[in-house]
Amino acid sequence: MGNILAFCEFDGGALRASALSNLSFARQAASAHGGEVIALLIGVGAAAAGPAAAAYAAKVVTVEHGDLGHYLAETYAPIVARLAGEHGAAIVCATATSVGKDLLPRVAALLDAGMASDISKLEGGNRFTRPILAGNAYSTVEVSTPVVCVTVRQSEFAPAEPTGSTGSVSSADAGAIDAKGARIDRVDSQKSDRPELTSAKVVVAGGRGMGNGENFKQLEALADLLGAAMGASRAATDAGMVPADWQVGQTGKIVAPNLYFAVAISGAIQHLAGMKGSKTIVAINKDPEAPIFQVADYGVVTTWEKAVPELIEEIKKVKATR
């Protein structure tokens, strides 16, 4: 018997889509452990987002403090660890976002907990399956510490639906806040009206073969027609054609949309690791031997210059008939 403390990221009064995958895992874990789900929201705006979170969890705990305005592992981890103790957590979990991956191992160290990262499945109790070797194998592990830390692969857990009842919301003290000499100077972000890459239903991704950033604009037109997120291979982001946060792959983002377009992407192992969970994969490449064709459901051997305008035209035709 133990509770599941689910660290949830939020934005503008609502939970992020990534947090809903974590809550989906947390519910499964709560039934395995015979405890309840406690959603934990930390930071400026936590109190305002608490009621939205209460639709998804039996209990919501918010920690609001002016000095927690920007996420820092140094300040957040002691709060999570302390609340894990106070709320009898058997599992502390977060989605494997850039925040979750940074935070949870630090929490684990403070709790002397064992940890399973980026899990794809709960097998029961403290047994988890997770991808290893860039997704070329899956390992099932059992973690035997009294408290266990877990990060959850967003693409493997469908977003939680509302529970149908409203959970209780309470606030907790931040305690002493010590950043240990760490601070955030600034965040350079690319604002976009497109959906988030990790939760988009359709992703349009380009590779080094696109040649330059200007050419990517044509792919962006395709993405906007489909309501898709933009992605890219490491080769394209490394060459500076597009922002680094578009990178799909083992070291970029892991995506599993319904439909994934890989345009002028050869299909290096490290890219495949980030997208091979997609439901339908379309590859467009002028090289018939490109490895991307081995994972693609549909492949067209042609240049992007020819394919992309045709795709836009054909998809417009389909849309016009609906």
Binding site: L72, S98, V99, A182, D185, V187, D188, P243, D245
Partner: peptide, 13 residues
């Protein structure tokens, strides 16, 4: 640091 939201500049002592 390449984070989900872009590039974060963090200074540590």
């Amino acid at each position: 640091r390449e984070v989900d939201a872009g590039v974060e500049y963090k200074t540590i002592a």
